[in-house]
Amino acid sequence: MVGEKRSMDWGFPRWRDYGASREATNVRICDRHNCNEPGNCPAPKAVGTNERWYFCEKHAAEYNKGWDYFEGLDKAEAAARAKQEQSENAGYAEASHYGWSGSGDGSRSADEMRALELLELEPDVDFETIKKAWRAKAKLVHPDVKPGDEDAAKQFQAYQVAYDVLKQAEERRSWRG
């Protein structure tokens, strides 16, 4: 008894510090070549199989970067699938910043993506580019330039609404920090 150390957990293992257990733990290493980080993010190896790659967070993000949920669907099918999924999940509240937006980095809402599509812009443009594109398109169909043209007036209103959506989103982003 002279050389033994007394355990500090008094028989209650949950009182130990995190990671202070005496047993060896199995840590799966990232499946990416030459990566020694823990591979705790499973990713499917192929469609319809249960085989998985196990990546670290960095390589999991790289693996999923170009993944498009609506790939291969036309706009009508994509809209129908999004509507079906929203109706199936009607019991869960959807956050205001979340929505299926197609391409982009996920920071823009579906309304913002539609506005950018109307202005014929990429999802990752800055606000100055949005403003320039809006001005150029609005000048072409402004009611002062095309008086009495109802189609031009509707188009001008659509551009104005798109710009307002993007401007409000930009203000929210800059206000948050």
Rank of each mutant, 00 (worst) to 15 (best):
V2M: 10
G3E: 15
S7W: 08
S7C: 08
D9M: 04
D9L: 02
G11P: 00
P13G: 03
R16M: 04
D17E: 15
A20I: 05
T25Y: 07
N26S: 14
N26C: 13
I29A: 03
I29G: 03
C30T: 07
H33N: 15
N34D: 15
E37Q: 13
A43E: 04
P44S: 11
K45G: 08
K45Q: 13
T49A: 07
N50T: 13
E51A: 14
R52H: 12
R52L: 14
W53M: 03
E57C: 15
A60T: 09
Y63M: 06
W67H: 15
E71Q: 10
G72C: 08
E77L: 13
E77V: 11
K83M: 05
E85Q: 10
S87R: 13
A90V: 08
A95C: 10
A95P: 08
Y98P: 07
Y98Q: 15
S101R: 01
G104I: 12
D111A: 04
M113E: 05
L119E: 00
P123D: 03
D126L: 02
I130C: 06
I130P: 06
K132W: 01
A133R: 01
A133G: 01
A133Q: 02
A133W: 05
W134Y: 11
R135S: 09
A136Y: 03
A138W: 00
K139I: 04
L140C: 07
V141L: 00
P143D: 00
V145N: 00
K146A: 00
E150K: 12
D151M: 08
A153F: 04
K154G: 05
V161L: 09
A162P: 04
R172V: 10
R173K: 12
R173S: 10
W175I: 13
R176L: 15
